[in-house]
Lab assay of single mutants.
Amino acid sequence: MKVIFLKDVKGKGKKGEIKNVADGYARNFLFKQGLAIEATPANLKALE
């Protein structure tokens, strides 16, 4: 799953980066902790 990092995550990505991560890791950790959001077209446009 492609995500946009909202904060730096050690070993995974830095704020503003778009990367592929495992679906479960994204849903169960990154999204719940507020560290990333899904890289949807609307979210990508908002990032610009």
Rank of each mutant, 00 (worst) to 15 (best):
M1A: 06
I37M: 11
K7M: 12
R27L: 13
L47N: 08
P41K: 09
G16S: 04
P41T: 09
Q33H: 15
K2I: 12
G11A: 05
Q33V: 11
E38I: 07
G34I: 02
A36N: 00
N43R: 07
G13I: 06
G13W: 14
N20R: 13
A39N: 02
A26K: 03
N20G: 07
K7N: 07
K12W: 15
N20D: 14
Y25H: 06
A39T: 02
A26P: 01
F5H: 01
P41V: 11
I18M: 06
L30Y: 04
A42V: 09
A46T: 11
K10L: 13
G13F: 14
P41R: 09
G13E: 02
G24K: 12
F5Q: 00
K45A: 14
N28I: 09
L35I: 07
K10P: 15
I4V: 09
Q33I: 09
D23P: 15
V9T: 04
G16R: 03
R27P: 02
L6N: 01
T40D: 05
Y25S: 05
R27Y: 11
E17P: 00
G11R: 06
N20H: 14
I37Q: 06
I18D: 01
K10W: 14
K2P: 08
N43T: 07
K32Q: 09
G16T: 02
F31R: 02
E38K: 08
A46W: 15
L35G: 02
K19S: 08
A22M: 11
K32V: 14
K45S: 12
E17A: 05
Q33L: 15
A22F: 10
T40K: 04
N28S: 09
E48Q: 14
N28Q: 11
N43E: 06
A46I: 13
V3E: 00
N28V: 07
Q33G: 08
V9P: 01
E17N: 04
G11P: 04
V21N: 00
V9E: 01
L35D: 03
F5A: 00
K45I: 12
G34D: 06
N43H: 07
P41Y: 11
K2H: 09
K7A: 12
A36L: 02
D8G: 06
N43M: 07
A42G: 11
K12P: 01
K14D: 05
F5Y: 08
D8F: 08
N28E: 12
K12D: 07
K2E: 09
Y25A: 05
I18P: 01
G13S: 04
L47F: 14
F5T: 00
A22P: 15
E48R: 11
K14T: 09
I4F: 08
G24S: 15
V3K: 00
E17T: 06
T40Y: 03
G24D: 14
E48I: 13
G34H: 07
V9N: 01
V3G: 00
F31Q: 03
A26E: 09
F29H: 09
R27W: 10
G24H: 14
K14L: 12
F29I: 13
N20I: 15
R27G: 03
A36Q: 00
F29G: 03
A39R: 01
I4L: 10
D23Q: 13
G11N: 09
N43D: 06
G11M: 06
K14R: 14
F31W: 03
F5P: 00
V3Q: 00
A36P: 00
L35W: 12
K14Y: 13
K12S: 13
V9H: 03
G16M: 06
E38L: 09
V21P: 00
L30F: 03
I18H: 02
A42M: 09
K10H: 13
F29A: 06
K10T: 11
K15D: 02
A22S: 15
L44Y: 04
L44R: 06
G24L: 13
G34W: 06
L44E: 05
F5S: 00
V3D: 00
T40I: 05
E17L: 03
I4Y: 09
A42Q: 11
Q33E: 11
G16A: 03
V3I: 10
A36D: 01
A42E: 15
G34Y: 07
K2R: 15
G13K: 01
M1R: 07
N43V: 08
A46P: 05
V9F: 05
P41H: 10
K19Q: 09
G34N: 11
R27Q: 09
G16L: 06
K10S: 11
L30E: 00
G24Y: 14
M1T: 12
D23A: 15
A36Y: 00
K14N: 10
A22L: 11
I37N: 02
I18L: 06
F29Y: 14
E38T: 05
L47R: 07
A46V: 11
I4N: 00
L47D: 05
E48K: 10
G16P: 01
E17R: 03
L30N: 00
K19I: 11
L30S: 00
K32Y: 07
D8I: 03
M1E: 04
T40A: 03
N28W: 12
K2S: 10
L35V: 06
I18A: 03
V21H: 02
V9D: 02
A26T: 09
Y25E: 08
K15T: 09
L6Q: 04
G13D: 02
I18K: 02
I37W: 06
F31A: 02
D23Y: 15
A42T: 10
R27D: 03
Y25P: 05
L44K: 05
K45T: 09
A42I: 09
L35A: 06
E38Y: 06
I18R: 02
K14Q: 11
A22E: 13
N28T: 10
Y25N: 06
F29P: 02
G11K: 06
K14S: 10
A42S: 12
N20E: 15
F5K: 00
K2W: 15
G13Y: 13
A39D: 02
L6P: 01
A42R: 09
A22V: 09
V9I: 09
L30G: 00
G13R: 02
K19A: 10
F5M: 04
E48P: 07
K14W: 09
T40M: 03
K19R: 13
G11H: 07
E48V: 12
F31L: 12
K10V: 13
D23M: 15
I37T: 05
K2Q: 12
T40H: 05
G11E: 05
K2L: 14
G11T: 05
A46Q: 12
M1W: 07
Q33D: 05
A36K: 00
D23S: 15
I37S: 03
E17V: 04
A46D: 10
L30P: 01
